[in-house]
Design a protein around this nucleic acid. Structure first.
Lengths: 295, 295
DNA sequence: CCCGGTTACGCTTGTCGTAAAGATT
DNA sequence: AATCTTTACGACAAGCGTAACCGGG
């Protein structure tokens, strides 16, 4: 179960080809073949069908493990290397779209920061792997509860903001005139599904059907779709109201769900160097929310 | 960052000796020395001080990563191997002490089960690594919220029980006559700290001071200590009341904290073989609680 | 017959053990 | 001086590439 073997295995499975994986990894086809053979001999199980190349049940299972495993490995490398590396002046900040708000803009120093907007589920990995020095993620949670993030590495998480929720919808929508909407009302609403940009609609909040799927991280596009009637979007109240007034054709209706808020958290590796630590402090400054460290 | 190197590294750090680690791992001292040297060359950082052998800051950081990493690796191995292995008749069940209750005893078949009681924090690892086929863990959570478990591997978690909480204390205690106790009242209570047996007292529930620490998994011993006045213990209400009446000198006082319950969850690997699957079904049968799968 | 995965084989590299050397208390 | 780690070196195995070898479309 050498990580090298695992890496070639995931490459082969992803590309569905030994030769393509070999090209990508800088090996020969032969080496890739030997890697897979070694893995299969080690586990005494066939992991891939050849021709066509596809994972067997056992292979699929291994794939589920391999991704997080390799991620953690890279994270460990990066984390230890970061300790020794000289603190660079430039700080890279990964943020999910809805985490980019007034608070962030106010805390941002004049120069020396690279902001990278990523889908929420890729932010923790980016910080853990060392691609970015800090991360800002957002998501739904119970008030003052931490977000449920995949623990790819020991990251320090700090709540930096919580906000009530609102629905963004077109002016003609049945809900548009109501003062508030409850979760129960939304059981068979038609949603805009935008996992890379917005709040994920987990099945827990009713088995919602999606009207349209939007793959992208652009909030303006998402709000435009919502106000045009292509589906409902759940947003932090401030964002929803701003989008509604900006569009003219949209309405923001508060969500009456006291046990559900939009929460933003700051992610930092266990050790942050000078410039990154300073930015982290400014982002967390005065935040009245829980500080806690993941195990 | 070969896992072998990581393994020797953690062994050396734990034993604080190259030679001892070599003996434990079946290597020569020379090989261990080379392993550490290889790691340090790879990361371009000194990981251990020699004489005395102790981790440097970078080494400590690596240690934090190494444990979960190696655990996940073993878990992946075991999980894939389990898929191929013939389903054995014997099922091994890991359970934390407070998870052993009437529900478990009722579901247990007449024969063919090995029950292993472990500290709560070791149950997930035991299941993930394949040492046990199923696990039962308990802990504190908000009602119908899943427990926060370390995600060592993709495990299927199923809530199988929730119960209100109560305090177990000696008859003479100031709280003993009250109908209920609130969390606020307990800010400076003196607790029995029994991380291996009971519910963990997280700092979130007030910066409680501990009166006595008990290392063990024996509930009867713990209850005896509590009723004898060595400190307060938080227990599921049923357990607390049973212990109080059994001791004669103890009192169980309900905890008035509607947002906090004792929750028991069933842990199972992504695939369970025949006998284990049957037991899992019996344990989960009729449970009115959430079913959800960790990412 | 071509494309793609497997097998054979030689070479390079890496890894372990033995043994001698170096360092620290 | 004793103990423990490091270094030197030789033996062996592992890993990769070249090239020949299948087996299916």
């Amino acid at each position: 179960m050498d990580p090298h073997l695992l890496r070639t295995f995931v490459a082969v499975a992803r590309l569905a080809s030994f030769s393509a994986a070999a090209r990508e990894l800088g090996y020969t086809q032969s080496a890739v073949s030997q890697h897979i053979a070694a893995l299969e001999a080690d586990l005494r199980t066939e992991l891939l069908t050849r021709r066509p190349v596809a994972p067997t049940p056992a292979g699929s299972r291994l794939l589920e493990h391999a991704g997080p495993l390799l991620l953690r490995l890279d994270a460990a490398r990066a984390d230890v290397l970061r300790l020794a590396a000289a603190p660079p002046g430039r700080v890279a900040l990964a943020a999910s779209p809805l985490a980019v708000g007034p608070r962030l803009l106010a805390a941002l120093p004049a120069t020396g920061v690279t902001l990278r907007v990523l889908p929420p589920d890729r932010v923790p990995a980016a910080v853990a792997a060392g691609d970015c020095d800090l991360g800002l993620v957002d998501g739904l949670a119970a008030p003052s509860d931490p977000l449920r993030l995949p623990d790819v590495a020991p990251l320090k998480t700090t709540g930096v903001g919580e906000e009530a929720l609102a629905l963004l919808l077109p002016a003609g929508h049945p809900f548009a005139r109501r003062a508030a909407v409850r979760l129960d009302d939304l059981a068979d609403a038609r949603w805009l599904d935008a996992p890379d940009a917005g709040l994920p609609l987990t099945p827990a909040h009713g088995s919602a059907r999606t009207a349209l799927r939007y793959d992208g991280t652009d909030l303006h596009a998402l709000c435009a779709l919502a106000t045009a009637g292509h589906g409902l979007v759940l947003l932090p109240r401030g964002v929803a109201e701003a989008a509604a007034t900006a569009s003219g054709t949209g309405v923001a209706v508060p969500l009456d769900a006291p046990r559900l808020v939009h929460r933003t958290e700051l992610l930092a590796p266990a050790t942050t160097s000078g410039a990154a630590a300073a930015l982290a402090a400014r982002l967390a400054a005065g935040s009245p929310y829980d500080h806690r460290t993941q195990p």
